[in-house]
């Protein structure tokens, strides 16, 4: 099996060659791979129906779809919070499994921002951000809530980065919608992530604030060279900020496009214009 370690060196493990995953393309670049993934919440219907997905390291990826199309389910599969009913998933060449120590290490570096943000309401902004550093604490430090000085400094640096300095002692419930999103992003960045998963974090915000938040994520993505996977229901926003967009409809991936400047490359039908894509998406939405 060929596997990339953190320094991008390629290691060939002859003993595990037999266990090579059944993916056609094995490359050190792929950070997330899904092969014919099916999931269901009940026995009657499937939330995802045979999704294939392959995401390169460092991509700014967007998943677009309407409510109930299976976008959030897709994200939950990517951080190991859900397991597929059928099919295979590999995150950094490992099958998600909460009981696997190796995968737990990967989980530490997957920043996940749910649609509801998941902030702890009754604690301060700084404490919320420091939650991202919990995997790096030993048992005694966890019990005593003793974060090392360098972690606190790092949290303050990130706080400044997201534009919230001076508000570290505010309780999370006192913040505005935009500020709460910044805290959630800061918590994810505090994990020193390699993957950032965000579920419709700008859907309820006004135009200006949502652009600010998206730019913030984009900046962080470039600076930290992380793989950002963001779920949107706004196609325009996805085309503006992402360099690869997948469209999900009724649990199936109906389209995957790459965005390079103004040109859009459809991986199934060839080049298309933004107008054509928008029109196609709108027609789909109306159905």
């Amino acid at each position: 099996m060929i596997r990339a370690n953190k320094n991008w060196h390629i290691r060939i493990d002859i003993n595990s060659m037999a266990k090579t995953p059944p993916f056609s393309l094995i490359s050190t670049k792929k950070i997330i791979q899904m092969n014919d993934v099916w999931t269901s919440y009940d026995s009657q219907s499937y939330a995802l129906e045979g999704v294939n997905l392959s995401i390169d390291r460092g991509t700014n990826y967007a998943i677009v779809g309407q409510s109930g199309s299976g976008k959030s389910t897709l994200l939950k599969l990517m951080n190991g919070m859900m397991t597929p009913s059928k099919g295979a998933i590999k995150i950094d060449y490992l099958t998600p499994n909460m009981n696997n120590k190796k995968f737990k290490k990967i989980m530490h570096t997957i920043g996940y921002i749910p649609q509801s943000l998941g902030l702890v309401k009754n604690v301060s902004v700084l404490d919320n951000i420091l939650i991202g550093a919990l995997p790096r604490l030993n048992k005694l430090q966890s019990i005593l809530k003793q974060f090392p000085e360098h972690e606190i400094q790092e949290a303050k640096r990130i706080l400044k980065l997201v534009g919230l300095s001076g508000k570290e002692s505010r309780k999370a419930y006192m913040l505005s919608g935009g500020e709460k999103r910044r805290v959630a992003i800061a918590r994810a960045l505090m994990q020193k992530p390699t993957i950032l998963l965000a579920d419709e974090i700008v859907s309820e915000l006004d135009h200006v604030t949502s652009r600010e938040i998206m730019n913030l994520v984009l900046d962080a993505q470039k600076k930290m060279n992380l793989t950002a996977i963001m779920v949107h229901h706004d196609m325009k926003l996805a085309l503006e900020f992402a360099n690869r967009v997948a469209v999900i409809k009724e649990g199936q991936k109906i389209l995957e496009i790459g965005v390079e400047g103004d040109t859009i490359v459809d991986f199934q039908t060839g080049d298309m214009s933004i107008e054509e894509i928008m029109e196609m998406y709108n027609t789909d939405s109306k159905e």
Binding site: K105, M107, Y112, P114, G118, L134, P135
Partner: peptide, 15 residues
Amino acid sequence: DPMDAVSSIGVSKFQ
């Protein structure tokens, strides 16, 4: 929601 968000980091149950 906060429980899901924080447990997805892979923290221990005690944490």
